[in-house]
Simulated scan of single mutants.
Amino acid sequence: MDAIDRKILAYVQKGGRDSYAEIGAAVGLSISAVNERLKKLHTCGAIQFWSAAVDPRAVGRPILAYTQVLTAGARSDDVDAFLNAVRRNDAVLECHHVTGRWSYLLKIRTESLESLEALLSGIAAAPGVTQTHTELALSSLKETSVVPLAADGT
């Protein structure tokens, strides 16, 4: 990946609906060169997929919670069942295996406190889960999916 690829990635993260001509003008390439580079960036996995940034409040998901989950030294089947349940639940936006006291950190978006409570009850009751801790976001100063790119590509 060279400097132009990084410029393209930085640009499309913020302007993914722009035309190849607009991207090309921003990075100094022709339409066909932008097309080829985007294909290569997709093939190598640098671009995983295309999506739209959706305002959670506009679609009825105003509740933002972060839940820490502790799993016991339980059988791996139990942890796998928990992780599969997390993968299937659309309200769980992110799941990270983390260091420290907790095993996993979940980012959750729900339509109400009642639906959050039901989801958390299910998580707490999952085999292998020994404890959870949840914090609600009162407001969000910054929320982005834009990945900063190192100048040298590392």
Results as ranks from 00 to 15, higher is better:
residue 4 I to F: 00
residue 7 K to E: 11
residue 7 K to M: 12
residue 9 L to C: 03
residue 10 A to L: 01
residue 11 Y to V: 00
residue 14 K to H: 09
residue 15 G to Y: 14
residue 16 G to M: 02
residue 17 R to W: 05
residue 18 D to R: 08
residue 21 A to L: 14
residue 25 A to C: 02
residue 26 A to P: 10
residue 26 A to F: 07
residue 27 V to F: 09
residue 28 G to C: 03
residue 29 L to Q: 06
residue 33 A to I: 01
residue 35 N to E: 11
residue 38 L to T: 09
residue 39 K to S: 10
residue 39 K to M: 07
residue 40 K to P: 00
residue 40 K to S: 13
residue 41 L to W: 10
residue 44 C to A: 03
residue 45 G to M: 14
residue 47 I to P: 06
residue 48 Q to C: 04
residue 49 F to Q: 14
residue 50 W to A: 02
residue 51 S to E: 12
residue 51 S to L: 04
residue 51 S to G: 15
residue 52 A to K: 15
residue 56 P to H: 13
residue 56 P to E: 00
residue 57 R to V: 14
residue 58 A to F: 05
residue 59 V to W: 03
residue 60 G to V: 07
residue 61 R to A: 09
residue 62 P to D: 07
residue 62 P to Y: 08
residue 63 I to G: 07
residue 64 L to A: 09
residue 65 A to H: 03
residue 65 A to Y: 11
residue 66 Y to R: 07
residue 66 Y to V: 15
residue 69 V to L: 05
residue 70 L to T: 10
residue 73 G to Q: 12
residue 73 G to I: 00
residue 74 A to K: 07
residue 76 S to N: 04
residue 79 V to R: 09
residue 81 A to T: 13
residue 83 L to E: 14
residue 84 N to W: 00
residue 85 A to N: 05
residue 88 R to E: 13
residue 89 N to V: 00
residue 90 D to M: 00
residue 90 D to L: 03
residue 93 L to H: 10
residue 95 C to L: 02
residue 96 H to E: 11
residue 96 H to W: 14
residue 96 H to S: 04
residue 97 H to Q: 13
residue 100 G to T: 06
residue 101 R to P: 04
residue 101 R to E: 13
residue 103 S to N: 08
residue 103 S to W: 01
residue 105 L to S: 14
residue 105 L to Y: 05
residue 107 K to Y: 02
residue 107 K to V: 15
residue 109 R to I: 02
residue 110 T to P: 05
residue 110 T to G: 05
residue 112 S to W: 07
residue 114 E to D: 14
residue 118 A to V: 14
residue 119 L to E: 12
residue 120 L to W: 02
residue 120 L to C: 07
residue 121 S to E: 14
residue 122 G to T: 02
residue 124 A to G: 00
residue 124 A to D: 12
residue 127 P to G: 00
residue 130 T to L: 01
residue 130 T to E: 15
residue 131 Q to S: 10
residue 131 Q to F: 01
residue 132 T to Q: 09
residue 134 T to K: 01
residue 134 T to V: 03
residue 138 L to Q: 07
residue 138 L to S: 01
residue 142 K to V: 11
residue 143 E to M: 12
residue 144 T to E: 12
residue 145 S to C: 09
residue 148 P to W: 04
residue 150 A to E: 10
residue 152 D to C: 12
residue 153 G to M: 11
residue 153 G to S: 02
residue 154 T to E: 14
